[in-house]
Computed example of a mutant assay.
Amino acid sequence: MDSKSSEQQSFTLEIQKEFDQRSGRVKSVDLHPTEPWILSSLHSGTVCIWNYQSQAMEKSFNLTEAPVRSAKFIARKKWFVAGADDKFIRVYNYDTDERLEEFEAHTDYIRSVAVHPTLPYVLSASDDVHIKLWDWEKDWVCSQVFQGHGHYVMQVAFNPRDNTTFASVSLDRTIQMWNLESTSSNLTIAAHTKGINSVDFSKCGDKTYVIIGSDDHTAKVWDYETATCVQTLEGHTHNVTAVCVHPEAPIIITGSEDGTIRIWHALTYRLENTLNFEFGRVWAIGCRSGSPEIVIGCDEGTIMGKVICSHSWDSVKLGHKEEVSRE
């Protein structure tokens, strides 16, 4: 057995809980890249910033009476951006608490926002089946509209290896790949037997995969260049609502309406651990580069845990509408 195979087989991990905070239903979570902060958006219309070191709330913003399904830090501007069921995108300065922008962005619920890592762009995805690109350096003009999905667009994510491309997933059961310069998708894959809720990218050597979670209770790993399903991750007993690939450790994290978090080895796809923090259904998972922490958003609040590996941290681093619940 070679050393790589030996290391993969001996790899084990645990999640050590470091922070939890009971609240209303959490629909999205994000970790600040430099501050010890968690951004949580709630079904109640509130966005909170929690300090996981002091175990206290830093800020609370009452955005709307509608659910805020997605909020992300734009750390380089000291902002956060949020999309809600009232169809509006809002931008706040989290230092001054000032609301900088508020505009109607879609004609139905906004499910997801994604921030470009270097350019002044925000993507938004909606139940109106459109994806839109917003440029904050041009007064938040909509510079592109991407059309192709036939049902609610549940999430969008930029490709970490090529930031000119992004993935989207929908309840039409497909994943689509896009280029920022074109309004037509480059690739459409009929990926699941039921609607798809979540997407993330996984880098493994010179290959990049997409991980998607579905209402068929599974997550799947796709090689989108060959349109091939590499692995199906089975075990959840309800809809898979969130997937997250850790940028530091070789793990895939999946969350479900069954209330559990499952941790999978990103190379072998072996199930490493199943966790239930008794916080109800899981709606969101987040992590960040340079940190072993993961953050989880659930029906009853926010949880943060640290990935504890059997090896040293450095050694595991990796370069139909009627049927739909609108919870």
Rank of each mutant, 00 (worst) to 15 (best):
I175S: 08
S170N: 05
V210W: 11
V210T: 15
N179D: 15
K207D: 12
M154C: 08
I196H: 00
L187V: 11
T193H: 08
T174C: 11
G195V: 01
A167L: 09
D206S: 15
C204S: 14
L187G: 05
N163M: 09
A190D: 14
T188V: 12
Y209M: 02
N163C: 13
T174D: 04
D206A: 13
E181F: 04
D172I: 09
S168D: 07
A190Y: 09
L171C: 09
F166T: 03
T193L: 10
M177K: 07
M177W: 08
N197Q: 08
L171E: 13
Y152I: 06
T174N: 13
S184Q: 14
N179W: 00
G195H: 03
A157G: 10
Y152F: 13
A167H: 12
D206N: 15
N186C: 10
N197E: 07
A167D: 07
F166L: 01
R173S: 11
S182C: 04
M177C: 08
T174R: 08
D206T: 14
Q155G: 02
T188F: 09
H192N: 07
T208R: 08
V153I: 11
F201W: 13
S184G: 06
D200K: 04
D206H: 14
A167C: 12
F166C: 08
L180C: 00
A157H: 06
N159G: 04
S168I: 07
K207M: 12
N197G: 01
S184W: 06
Q176T: 03
Q155K: 10
